[in-house]
Amino acid sequence: MLEISRLSKRRPGDTERSLFSGLELRIAAGECVAVVGESGSGKSTLLNCLAGLEPVDGGELRLGGTTLTGLDDDAYARVRRERFGFVFQAFHILPHLTLAQNVALPLWLLQRPAAQAEREALAMLERVGLRDRADDWPAGLSGGEQQRVAIARALVHNPQLVLADEPTGNLDPARADDVLDLLLARIRDSGAAGILVTHSHRAAARCDRILRLSESGLLPADEG
């Protein structure tokens, strides 16, 4: 589903040293890869590069057979809208939208008819177990519940790639396992490729593969 070849990115403000270079990665549909690495090794930058929010210095990205490298800002924004799903450590549930509206947000951006968007959002909420709270405001939600809404939002429009940045970083371990299980299950269900950036070995261990990011590229982690 996702093919990364010879991807390289220099450290910001430093033309000599690279964060990574010659990075190669292939992820199949329904596969979920964990990326671990030291703080500052460029995990988040890698995600931004994949999402087109930061320019790359070389290499090529292909998603579902389309080349993404070289797209302009607007085109990449459209790609993100249609084919990407995101889960953040800080959830970023909008407090002024109901749970259903938060989940429907990607569908709104895709200009789906309102009724359809609502229907699909509710279906998605059903799958993360929050159907009965669809019309609630996010203010009363626990961290785990918020992240479940975020997962629903990341998957509601059937993306080809789901990028999750420390999705369990703000959750206690018991909650974290539940949420991660849900996320992985939903990614696998949807047939998307998933990349999970995390510090947590416990979290990484639940993924199909674990890769460590360093200057020399993505290498299978020696432990796991």
Binding site: D73, D74, A77, R78, F84, F88, A90, L109
Partner: peptide, 13 residues
């Protein structure tokens, strides 16, 4: 944070 999220979700600048 909100605007960053929206950018991720595919909103242009």
């Amino acid at each position: 944070g909100e605007f960053g999220m929206l950018r991720h979700l595919g909103m242009a600048r």
